[in-house]
Design a protein around this nucleic acid. Structure first.
Lengths: 223, 223
DNA sequence: GTCTATAGAATGATAGAC
DNA sequence: GTCTATCATTCTATAGAC
């Protein structure tokens, strides 16, 4: 088995195992068993368990960001540098939703690894996660170009809520399926995406409406 | 030190430690050090680490559910058994938001423990988590009474999204603060609650509107 | 009930032969 | 580069003195 084969086998096995279990629960012995390589190979090729996880995280992160930015670029090019709000949102949330929920899951392990990584707080990842903020900022800027009259804080909240809905839908697949007794179809990626996009667009564009609702709710609350 | 004192010290210390660290990272030695009790005391009083965590989880869960249902009851009583949609949502999401984000955090550890527990997937917790579905169902029923014309699937999605936004806002406090450079005030519990409630109410009540937006977005997408 | 002491198992990492 | 063998550590859990 060549060097690259061993490296690749380890990366693939670790990615898949960590997509389904918490990082702490996945041991080096689990990984080498799944990859069919020797225990010492991990430390030889990657140095440590954390370094291995970091390499996977970076690879998945780059792939996800590339996919998102490609979709954003298409939307911006189509609008002469000014994408529609719904297209900005779709570019942000659809890749992960498709990767995690699409039945013919091609990028499944990679996407679920990212979801898992967003929950675990490994010190090694903190530095990498700061890059994620820069990535999000590009979507905030695109949304600001789409909605120039909107304040940045509202745009940040809108993007954050869209991500939150996508993210938690992936995490709570089981609960939502059980709660709705199957009425909510968690395999309908297109439908879910449009539901989240529609909600987010309403919040982002319905300025007067939202503010009125917010104010009214606050007023009611005090009474 | 009396029995109850030791038990209570362990529960408090474990709750606080697990609110800030993943369950796997919190060791029995960490807990006894924080509680100032002996290592063997945990197994004597609780039987095992998992049993201790389960007891904390159940206690926190009961407290949270009680708080939510009390708010729901007030809203339903005020409306002769039919609460307003925004009040149903507020009863659902405000307790956790306040517990986790309010500066004068009284129930902070308990609330953050619940957030943490919702991410960790300990086998022992699966049985308990099924109870959570029953709890959510009561809010779905209350929302159905508030919006009888709405289909149950839409109601489930609406409650799920509201919870998702609240939940992820708590989890992503750091990222959102950094992204917005302080423009999003993560200590303003009332403002955050109203933002989430307004968004969820729009999605839940703007039936024709939402459907039009969803259809339009889908149509645009295909073109 | 509380303590000390330790059993028993699992982990990440490495040294050294091939 | 790959393997075996093993180190050093850490953990939960428990037995038994007090």
């Amino acid at each position: 088995m060549s060097t690259d084969q061993t490296r690749h086998a380890i990366l693939t096995a670790a990615e898949r195992l960590c997509a389904d279990n918490s990082f702490g629960d996945v041991t080096l012995r689990d990984i080498v068993a799944a990859a069919n390589v020797n225990l010492a190979a991990i430390n030889y090729h990657f140095g440590s368990k954390d370094a291995l996880l970091a390499e996977i995280y970076i690879a998945c992160s780059i792939a996800l960001n590339r996919e998102r930015l490609a979709a954003l670029k298409i939307a911006e090019d189509a609008g002469q540098g000014r994408a529609r709000p719904d297209e900005v949102l779709r570019a942000l949330i659809e890749p992960l939703l498709r990767g995690c929920l699409d039945p013919d899951r091609q990028r499944s392990a990679s996407s679920r690894f990212m979801i898992r990584a967003s929950m675990e707080s490994i010190p090694t990842f903190r530095r990498i996660k700061n890059k994620e903020v820069d990535h999000l900022r590009r979507f905030a800027e695109a949304m600001k170009r789409a909605l120039p009259e909107r304040e940045m804080a509202d745009i940040y909240w809108g993007l954050h809520f869209a991500l939150a809905m996508a993210h938690q839908t992936i995490n709570d697949v089981e609960r939502l399926t059980k709660l709705s007794d199957g009425a909510c179809d968690l395999t309908d990626v297109e439908g879910i995406t449009e539901r989240i996009v529609a909600t987010s667009v309403m919040t982002l564009t319905g300025d007067a409406q939202t503010e009125r609702a917010t104010a009214k709710a606050a007023a009611r609350r005090k009474s």
